[in-house]
């Protein structure tokens, strides 16, 4: 017990440093464990009843491959509705390595039980390495194998984040990460798939899609890239950019130190807004406080399949995509002159 006390104090200090109330943190973990219905299930019959009621909610399995868990964190930041209320009240989260209280065998048991039941919503975060299975191992097994095993029994698959949707940054890495759509195709698995790209996933996009599925039991309408049409594919970042007038006037920021240019178009600095069809400009981030373009940043089209290998270098107009945008810009300018 003594050792535990020392550990708790250390952990408490650690959590305090990060502004987290330890009690709330543990309470959250414990409640999640109850919903997960794992270790307790074996020892207390009371929890078994709770588990029964929990299992009537749509089961969800959240699994991660070549991920940074940034999508989980992004989702956890959501306030309306709070992530905890979705996890605790609306769905039955069977497996999530970052939030579940159980570890080791008990955690794996929860996963296997969920797979046995089948029909769950499978949320996947991160890419799947295609160069060599050993780049991602789940215990002694290749992660790809486990990924396919879970996918085979899923009712629907949601790929969250750029890595999971199209490969994202891991696609440019030596491990040659691929997205869920590609991985399912290679394994010959046919399941309804929703890509919710952007790096990280937008909490509203994910919560909205989950809630849509809960209410209607259907996959929402998707755009040509497999993303929910209610969030993607309609208007480009460029169309709603507040620097747009300067683009049309041919005024491009070349020198950050020149106050005269401070509101000019950031295309020359590497902005990929014209090919980025995401609703950031209206939805914004961090509870609608701001987003990349509103804090002097550039759009890197993180929700598009071109991210990241085709948009690099990020901060100059020398990428493959920037050259394409440049060609479009040139032709539109010459059309204007002729017209």
């Amino acid at each position: 017990m003594k050792e535990e006390d020392i550990l708790s104090k250390e952990l408490e200090r650690e959590l305090e440093l990060h502004g987290i109330n330890r009690r709330d943190f543990l309470k959250y973990c414990a409640t999640t464990a109850a919903v997960l219905g794992i270790s307790e299930l074996e020892f207390t019959s009371g929890v078994a009843h709770a588990m029964e009621t929990a299992s009537k909610k749509p089961p969800v399995v959240w699994f991660a491959g070549q991920a940074c868990t940034g999508c989980t964190i992004s989702f956890a930041q959501i306030n309306y509705p709070p992530a905890s209320s979705i996890i605790l009240d609306k769905i039955s989260l069977r497996y999530h390595m970052t939030v579940m209280a159980a570890a080791g065998e008990v955690a794996e048991k929860a996963l296997h039980e969920a797979i046995k039941e089948g029909g769950y919503v499978y949320i996947f975060e991160g890419a799947i390495p295609s160069a060599d299975d050993r780049f991602w191992m789940h215990g002694k097994r290749p992660g790809r194998e486990v990924f396919e095993e879970i996918a085979k029994k899923a009712g629907a698959v949601i790929a969250v984040g750029a890595c999971s949707a199209y490969g994202g940054i891991p696609r440019a890495c030596p491990t040659k990460g691929i997205g869920v759509g590609e991985a399912l195709k290679r394994a010959g698995i046919n399941k309804p798939l929703i890509n919710i790209s952007t790096c990280p996933v937008h909490p509203d996009h994910l919560a909205g899609t989950i809630l849509y599925y809960l209410v209607t039991g259907k996959v929402p309408e998707l755009d040509s890239k497999g993303r929910p049409a209610m969030y993607f594919g309609e208007v480009s970042m460029h169309d709603n950019c507040r620097r747009r007038a300067h683009f049309d006037a041919g005024e491009f920021l070349k020198d950050w130190n020149n106050p005269k240019q401070k509101n000019w178009c950031l295309f020359e600095k590497g902005c990929k807004g014209p090919v980025s069809y995401i609703d950031c400009t209206v939805r914004r981030w961090n509870d609608g406080i701001s987003f990349c373009l509103d804090c002097g940043g550039l759009c890197q089209a993180c929700g598009e399949p071109i991210f990241y290998d085709k948009v690099t270098p990020l901060y100059s107009a020398e990428s493959e995509i920037s050259k394409k945008i440049y060609a479009i810009r040139k032709s539109s300018l010459s059309n204007k002159k002729n017209g």
Partner: peptide, 27 residues
């Protein structure tokens, strides 16, 4: 699990590094 960010960043514009390496860990 490994992705090989270090190997991937070799030869890239150095300004990419801050954007990419922040994806090492999102927690």
């Amino acid at each position: 699990m490994a992705r090989g960010f270090e190997a991937m960043l070799t030869g890239k514009d150095p300004r990419d590094a801050s954007y990419v390496t922040s994806r090492f860990c999102g927690v």
